[in-house]
């Protein structure tokens, strides 16, 4: 069983702008109101890059920046795991629309932004992070895949890890395919070492099917199915409410068992 520390959390969802706000909702000190999104303003991405970046890249950078600031770590010293269900379906929609024309025209910027690892590329250019970075797709379980990958990276490299999981809202007509119906993202800074900023100690293992009884507030349950990154709310809820363990569903019978210990 692997033990690690969460030293920073970033989150964005309709009605949730950051981790302190999320925590007050999860502990039911504040009523959840799924407002439309706040303006996504990443400071870390230079203005020139920001104009060229896709919405998906900006969501990823926005939550990553929150987590980095909270953990008080240097972004260029981190390895990173980016993960998303659909990648950039806003761009896929535009590309497929153009390609249906008899004389297709594709914008070169749109094409290179269409790759699944565009948010990771955008982040690394902005922060000058030159270490290992990967970009995963795991359907509804993209957050869980990223969590496992981050732990496996911590076991084999010295750097702290930035985990960022995100999806932008899928546009019409692809939204009929139930990929993501809200702009959401979550980011964690994971480390083998505790720091003054440590939020929780986490021990993690793969397990087989057991009954799940998460106590997440009912008002947040639609969010969990609205966007793959919001599967993280089950873990965040356990952290906010000081539970000692929580189980995340993964593929088929697989689950991720997380033991939590306050620091």
């Amino acid at each position: 069983m692997t033990t690690l520390y969460i030293n920073g959390i970033g989150i964005l969802a309709p009605g949730i702008e950051n981790w302190p706000e999320c925590k007050t909702i999860l502990t039911q000190q504040k009523t959840y109101q799924p407002n439309t999104l706040y303006k996504i303003t990443s400071q870390i991405i230079p203005a020139k890059e920001r104009r060229r970046a896709s919405r998906t890249s900006l969501i990823a950078a926005y939550v990553a920046e929150q987590a980095v600031n909270q953990a008080e770590v240097l972004a260029d010293q981190l390895s990173s795991v980016f993960s998303s269900y659909g990648g950039d379906l806003q761009i896929a929609d535009k590309l497929c629309t153009s390609l249906a024309d008899n004389d297709p025209f594709i914008s070169p910027i749109q094409f290179h932004n269409s790759v699944h690892n565009a948010p990771a590329g955008c982040w690394s250019i902005a922060t000058q992070a030159q270490s290992t970075t990967t970009s995963l797709a795991g359907s509804h379980f993209s957050f869980q895949a990223a969590l496992l990958e981050s732990v496996a990276l911590l076991e084999t490299e010295d750097n702290d890890i930035l985990l960022a999981c995100y999806d932008s809202k899928t546009p019409e007509p692809l939204n009929s395919q139930h990929t993501s119906n809200a702009d959401c993202g979550v980011a964690l800074i994971l480390s083998k070492h505790s720091s003054n900023q440590s939020i929780i100690q986490l021990s993690l293992s793969l397990t087989n099917k057991t009954d799940i009884n998460n106590k997440i507030p009912a008002c947040l349950k639609p969010l969990i199915t609205a966007n793959a990154s919001m599967q993280s709310l089950i873990l965040l809820d356990a952290i906010a409410n000081k539970q000692s363990s929580v189980i995340l569903d993964y593929l088929d019978n697989l689950q991720i068992k997380c033991l939590l210990k306050n620091v």
Partner: peptide, 28 residues
């Protein structure tokens, strides 16, 4: 039935999966 995901980092994707196999076996 084991853990699974797709790595999509453009043209390095299916090289990086070798590193993933090592990491996942190493992590147990």
């Amino acid at each position: 039935k084991g853990p699974a995901f797709v790595v999509s980092t453009a043209c390095s994707s299916s090289a990086k999966v070798f590193a993933d196999a090592y990491r996942f076996i190493h992590a147990g």
